[in-house]
Amino acid sequence: METMNSARSLKKRFFQWLRICGQILLLLGMMTQSGCELQPPKGVTAFRFEDKREVQSAQLIPPKSDEMRGAIRLKFIDTNLFQTTATLAPGRYGLVVRLGEGQYLRTEIEIVPNQQLYRIPTFTSVASPPVTLGPRLEGRLYVREGKMPHEVVVLFISHDVVIRRVPVGGDGRFSVEAPAKGSYRVELVAPSAPAWIWTTDKLDLSGDVNLDLVVMRRAY
């Protein structure tokens, strides 16, 4: 008797499992047909290019009012899907992409608060290839107290002064491109009250440089 009851229970659970699986498959099918897509995790902004041509690389050009900030390279996630963890202030951004055949295209996009996924249906114009950037400078900030800064201003000082503003990850990591190969005095400034700073008299940037741990100090 117990064996029969156990068999009936297993049979009932099996059909319940089949019904649940069927509902899940139906839901997934409906999502696919309706173009539903999972939202990016917190702190990530994603861009889905709906053009049939495959996008090889993409970068955001900040608004003209944000002159200190350089272009933001988007990270490839999947075919025609790119993302960034950079903090994007609301405003109108340029979006430049490179297609597989080497063609550059551009469009404009309005970044709005609390939106993490943007669908780009088409491009509005042909773009010139972006200016070639210099070596990459990267490192990891360390602050003795308080919260890790969300961004850092990097000054490359030579015959001219070039200022770039880049995001800082939760672990303190940052990455920025120098204007060109050469030797620079480099200053890092993380906005706060008072600001965190770090300086070096001369840094050889004939190639990519990793500063490893960058110990910031208060600008009293």
Rank of each mutant, 00 (worst) to 15 (best):
I61S: 06
I61P: 02
S65L: 02
G139V: 05
Q56G: 12
L95K: 03
K64F: 11
L74G: 03
R69N: 08
K64L: 01
A71T: 12
L81F: 11
E54M: 15
I111S: 00
G102K: 14
L99Y: 10
R69K: 10
P90A: 02
P62T: 09
E50A: 05
R98L: 00
T84L: 04
S57Q: 12
Q116S: 14
V55H: 01
P62H: 04
E67I: 12
Q116K: 03
I72N: 07
V55K: 05
P90C: 03
G134Q: 07
A127N: 07
Q116H: 05
D78P: 06
S125Y: 11
S128N: 14
P90Q: 02
D66I: 00
K52Y: 08
F76M: 04
R69L: 14
A89Y: 11
N114P: 00
R48N: 14
L117K: 01
G94P: 03
A46N: 05
T87F: 10
G100F: 11
P130Y: 14
M68N: 12
R92Y: 07
T85Y: 01
P135Y: 01
L60V: 01
V97I: 13
A46L: 05
R48Q: 14
R119E: 00
L133Y: 11
R136L: 13
T84G: 05
G70D: 06
P63L: 08
R69F: 14
I61H: 07
G102L: 13
L141M: 06
G134V: 08
S128I: 11
I111A: 02
A58R: 06
F47E: 08
R92G: 12
A127E: 10
L117I: 06
D66M: 01
S65E: 15
R98E: 06
I77F: 15
Y118F: 15
S125A: 15
V55T: 11
R106Q: 13
A127W: 06
I111C: 02
P129T: 01
L137F: 02
G91N: 02
T84K: 00
Q59K: 15
Y104R: 01
G102C: 12
E138F: 00
E138W: 06
Q59F: 14
R98N: 07
F82T: 03
P63K: 00
G134T: 06
L137A: 10
Y93Q: 01
T85I: 05
L133W: 09
E54A: 15
R106Y: 00
R106G: 13
G139P: 08
M68D: 09
I111F: 04
V126L: 13
K75S: 12
E138N: 10
I77R: 12
L99M: 10
L74I: 04
T84S: 04
G139H: 09
Q116I: 02
I109C: 09
G94R: 02
L95Q: 05
S57R: 10
I61E: 09
N80E: 14
T122W: 10
Y118R: 01
Y118N: 03
T84W: 04
E50Y: 00
A127S: 13
L117N: 01
I77Q: 11
E138M: 03
P129R: 06
L81D: 13
I77M: 06
M68T: 13
V131D: 01
T84D: 06
A58E: 01
P121K: 15
F76Y: 13
N114R: 10
T87V: 00
